[in-house]
């Protein structure tokens, strides 16, 4: 879409065009839900078949980093929600609020990746990459960590895509090359971002909590 609010092909009205954008992203998110759903299913089967291994492996993840990241991501969802709500209001006066909130979201998302980076480094040092010198002996622990890397990796890719999308909006809004009022792109980016957060809400207990309740 362009940086001005010209009507795009094939739409007859702007309101309809906005509806189209939101509708499209919802369909896309349904696809995404099945995508992560299949991953979680794989996790569930692995855990049912190797309960001990998953518990032993779950104990090795770093719950501090995980919890910190949950907090960061939830906060970013809040700022994104404010940005998209403020944009939807259509008040020119809210322009600055939108810009600030978009910026905050991007920074929080970057913070998430940085924390994740530290966590990954620690995991590598603790020999938690499945392979020959993997640290945990229990059967199935390797599967847990295989899924740990895949799930968090795929999630991190989604976060990065979000960062690109939202920074673009942020820069264009900040330099006033794009009107934010009633701009469907902000709502679309917001929906995507909330989805990425919700996925994390499922990831967190699967990865950081096994083996911790019983000590």
């Amino acid at each position: 879409m362009s940086d001005t609010e010209i009507l795009q092909e094939p739409w007859a009205r702007v309101s309809r065009q906005r509806e189209g954008a939101t509708f499209g992203i919802w369909v896309f998110l349904a696809t995404e839900a099945l995508f992560f759903g299949a991953l979680f299913l794989t996790y569930a089967i692995g855990r049912i078949e190797n309960p001990a291994g998953f518990v032993a492996a779950g104990r090795e993840t770093d719950v501090f980093y995980g919890t910190l990241n949950t907090a960061i991501l939830l906060t970013s969802s809040l700022t994104m929600a404010v940005a998209s709500q403020a944009a939807a209001e259509g008040e020119a006066a809210l322009h600055r609020l939108v810009v600030w909130c978009l910026g905050a979201t991007v920074l929080l998302a970057l913070a998430f990746l940085v924390v994740k980076g530290f966590e990954y480094r620690e995991d590598v040092e603790k020999h938690l990459v499945p392979g020959r010198d993997f640290a945990i002996v229990e059967r199935g622990a390797q599967i847990f960590f295989a899924l740990y890397w895949i799930i968090t990796g795929v999630h991190a890719i989604h976060v990065s895509v979000g960062i690109v999308l939202i920074s673009r909006l942020w820069i264009m809004a900040a330099t006033r090359r794009m009107k934010v009022e009633k701009n469907p792109q902000i709502e679309v980016a917001g929906l995507y971002w909330h989805f990425v957060d919700i996925v994390w809400i499922f990831v967190y207990p699967l990865i950081y909590l096994p083996g911790r309740a019983t000590g």
């Binding site: 794989t42 692995g46 392979g131 390797q142 295989a146 890397w149 895949i150």
Partner: peptide, 20 residues
């Protein structure tokens, strides 16, 4: 998307040696 995941897991297992 479910096909995508199953192939992604095959790729991960074959390429990176991640057991699934």
């Amino acid at each position: 998307p479910v096909l995508a995941i199953s192939l992604l897991l095959v790729i991960a297992e074959r390429w990176l040696g991640l057991p699934i």
